[in-house]
Simulated assay, not measured.
Amino acid sequence: MNRRTPGEHVAVTHQVASVLLGYPDERLYDARPVLAEAVTGLPDGPAATHLREFLAHLDVTPLPGLAAHYVEIFDFKRRCCPYLTYYTHGDTRKRGMALLRFKHAFRAAGFEISDGELPDHLAVVCELSGRGASREATRLLQEHRPGVELMLRALEAESSPYAHVVAAVLATLPPLGPRDRAALHKLAAEGPPPAEEVGLEPYGATTPQDFPGPLDGHLYAPLEGQLEDHR
């Protein structure tokens, strides 16, 4: 019997999304049964449907092909950037200040970001939710909702299966309001964000292969624990 609360369903959705949005390796494929069981426990709706669609793609896609697509999409398509502050600030000094907002939110929730890890990666924010700080993570997602929406549109334009994962995350948020809709149209009209290449020194550079977030083995433990608690 499913005894999860709506808030717990959000946390599970975000935790699964966090794992799926990390750079794919063999641990992701080994965790496929755990991820599928977690999604099976979600209520019917857009979030569960989108996550099932991505897992179905995972079933028929060899690891090298998915990894190559991940790099092509998230490294070389600027509009598909998974770092949320990039959409409003680009690689400028202002982005460094925006990143501090994320870092402070993580710290207030009792979490510390590893050295060199940018806290605004969508997978990292979703991980925060999956680890019990859904309120803080959801607030960050809502503050950067236009950027996430723009990312989804870009992924859909590229026919990327990762659009399903981003859509699942967005399905956990309230409907897009007039203010966010106006901000989305403004971002879309402005084109790629500016690049200044300064102001991010305290965070270092992060490449997909070095990204320490959702693909570390410890991230699968919360999902397994939630499955045990709510079977």
Rank of each mutant, 00 (worst) to 15 (best):
E190N: 11
L122R: 03
E8Q: 15
E117S: 15
E37L: 13
A68I: 00
G130N: 01
L99E: 02
R179H: 13
S159E: 13
R52G: 04
P46G: 05
R95M: 03
P175I: 03
A48W: 04
D229G: 06
A11L: 10
E72F: 03
P178K: 08
V166A: 02
R231F: 12
P202C: 02
A154T: 05
P46N: 10
T61E: 08
D120Q: 03
R79C: 11
G22R: 00
G65W: 08
P24V: 07
E26A: 15
R93W: 10
V71F: 04
L99G: 06
V60L: 11
A188M: 14
P146Q: 01
A109P: 07
L170H: 07
F111D: 07
H89A: 10
L58G: 05
R79S: 15
P24D: 01
R27S: 10
L215M: 11
G130D: 05
D115F: 11
R32E: 13
D30R: 15
R135G: 15
Y220V: 12
L58Q: 05
V124Y: 00
L51N: 06
V124H: 04
L152I: 00
P161M: 05
D30I: 09
A108M: 13
D75M: 02
I73N: 04
R27D: 14
R107L: 14
L66I: 12
P194Y: 03
L63W: 05
R153L: 14
R153E: 14
L118A: 03
L200W: 08
Y162G: 07
A31C: 11
H50A: 15
F102Y: 12
E26P: 08
P146N: 01
D59Q: 13
D180I: 03
L223Q: 02
G45E: 09
R231L: 11
P6Q: 05
G110R: 08
L35C: 01
R153W: 06
S134P: 00
T206L: 10
F76A: 07
L150F: 08
L84S: 04
P64T: 06
L84E: 03
V60A: 13
A221T: 13
H185M: 15
F74R: 01
A68Y: 00
A48N: 04
V10Y: 02
E156K: 11
P212G: 05
H230V: 11
P202M: 08
V16Y: 01
R231V: 14
H14G: 03
G213K: 04
P202F: 07
A195I: 14
E224A: 13
K77M: 08
F211I: 01
T61M: 09
A183L: 11
A47I: 04
G7W: 10
E228Q: 12
A171K: 02
R153C: 09
I113E: 01
S159A: 14
T5Q: 09
L122S: 06
L122V: 15
